[in-house]
Write a protein that binds this DNA or RNA. Structure first.
Lengths: 198, 198
DNA sequence: CTCAGTTATCAACGCTTGTTGATAATATGT
DNA sequence: ACATATTATCAACAAGCGTTGATAACTGAG
């Protein structure tokens, strides 16, 4: 099937991986890149270089930069395990997640929330992100909460996570970094929990 | 001093306003533009056209796009009157501000929070925004709260406003728009108020 | 071995970006 | 009225963008 035969011929010595594996490599590279800068600031060349391939390959695989971004985001926010836990402790769990060590959050391969906040201001990326966010996160969370105003609560919880992530990871707030982590976590947890059942 | 003498000569019939007035025109245009799209997506030509002038004028006046953005943001967040009121009703006041009619919020000349969230994901704009935000909003608010953890609380309040603005105005959340405004305002107000004195 | 069918490479396209220097137009001082 | 300083206009730069087509390299079947 894909027998990686590394033949050292006269000029082309790259590891020519077949399209299926390359697709994953490009998606991974794009996820990493878009988690660190906005849709408008990341170029196709940059993604291709990060995946160790050619810009044209990216175009062949996804058709356009916008469709690559769409494919990347399509199933992004569904599998964040912090939203799957019991509702009673969701505030605490999210607060812990948001106050994880700064360095760890910055070196992650791909962080869905950082991806979201980095491109939320882009006119091209915003509608794509909004659709995916509502379909894979807000609506399921809304059903989990169940109440009549479950959708509103789900949206407000998302807004809290989004706002805090932006302030901490995009704006690099010195106030957050200087503060007592336990104190931040406590206020944050109760503010979020209030949106779940307040 | 500036006697706007509109002379209709053979080719140049523009109203040549002196530099001081033009500076304000460009700053206003930039404020409007950056409130609707990210730093990376707005060009100097676009700002110049909105101000009814030449891109070169913008460069002469501010030196670079980055310095124009810095000058624009420098004293941005200080005069938001929603943060000046009494602490007891701050949650309610901010919730009302955030739930103002969608159309009104979108046609505003310059909205400081929209400007903030639109470019928070940009690598160039983020440090500039962060410095201005902390100096003109978070620190004064922290002093107003006064407690030992006032800075943390001020940051968390800002994060709430930022997150909700992003979800509503940048991502255009259909959930927020479909919800009962009074219900959203109520939960939002109490969640913010909890950060003030929780 | 040869032929077809994939897949990767490379150069280039047209366009936009931030920025600059030369030039034209105006206002000011004598 | 003339010289001078200040201001606006325009064309162009180099660099970067998303995107594409021609071409080379490799794989498998006959």
């Amino acid at each position: 099937m894909k027998m990686s035969t590394v033949v050292d011929n006269n000029r082309s010595r790259r590891d020519r991986t077949p399209s299926a594996e390359m697709r994953l490599r490009v998606l991974s590279a794009a996820g990493k890149a878009f988690s660190r800068a906005s849709y408008d600031a990341i170029g196709v060349r940059e993604i291709a270089a990060l995946a160790g391939t050619d810009p044209a390959i990216v175009m062949r695989l996804f058709g356009s930069k916008e469709r690559l971004f769409t494919d990347l985001v399509e199933n992004a926010f569904g599998n964040e395990e912090v939203f799957q836990g019991p509702l009673k402790t969701m505030g605490k769990q999210l607060a812990q997640y948001l106050m994880q060590p700064f360095a760890k959050a910055q070196t992650t391969e791909k962080d869905d929330f950082q991806l979201l906040l980095r491109s939320a201001g882009s006119l091209v990326a915003a509608p794509i992100l909004s659709a995916a966010l509502h379909r894979t996160l807000i609506e399921p969370l809304s059903r989990a909460i169940g109440k009549a105003d479950g959708a509103t609560r789900a949206a407000l919880i998302t807004a809290q996570v989004l706002g805090f992530s932006t302030l901490r990871f995009a704006l690099g707030s010195p106030v957050i970094e200087a503060a007592d982590p336990a104190a931040v976590e406590r206020v944050l947890a109760s503010a979020i929990q209030l949106c779940v059942d307040g």
